[in-house]
């Protein structure tokens, strides 16, 4: 698993690729936390992962908490239906911002 990083007009878009499970969650965590240390505007794109387990959800929650505490913004984008249903079951759709595309997310970054 690896995490692709891209800068789009001041917003860092992170795209985890492959499986986000317990064996890879640390790589995911290190990448997203390092990005959040340098930039308060983060989008995470979910179109390149097979599935996300609770280990991956934990990392997304940690990132959300960190950006909330530093007055940053986190938006989750490009979520396939199956991944979205896992976020919804977990109640994460109520505490994190989820948009269909990056274009839709853009206004949320101000």
């Amino acid at each position: 698993m690896e995490v692709k990083t891209e800068d789009n007009s001041g917003v860092i878009i992170l795209t985890p690729m492959g499986r986000v499970d317990t064996s890879t969650a640390k790589i995911f965590e290190d990448s997203v936390m390092a990005a959040a240390d340098t930039n308060g505007k983060i989008a995470v794109s979910f179109d390149s992962i097979d599935y996300i387990s609770s280990a991956g959800l934990r990392v997304v929650l940690m990132l959300g908490k960190k950006l909330k505490a530093s007055n940053g913004t986190l938006v989750l984008i490009n979520m396939p239906d199956k991944i979205y249903s896992v976020f919804k079951m977990s109640g994460f759709d109520k505490i994190l911002k989820i948009c269909a595309t990056f274009d839709e997310a853009k206004p949320l970054f101000g």
């Binding site: 280990a55 929650l61 908490k65 977990s90 505490i95």
Partner: peptide, 21 residues
């Protein structure tokens, strides 16, 4: 508790909860 706010939200037990669902 899947309805608590982001600051209070804890991750424990989420895996088994997903399996049940």
């Amino acid at each position: 508790n899947t309805s608590s706010g982001i600051e209070e939200r804890e991750i424990g037990g989420l895996g088994i909860f997903l399996v049940k669902q």
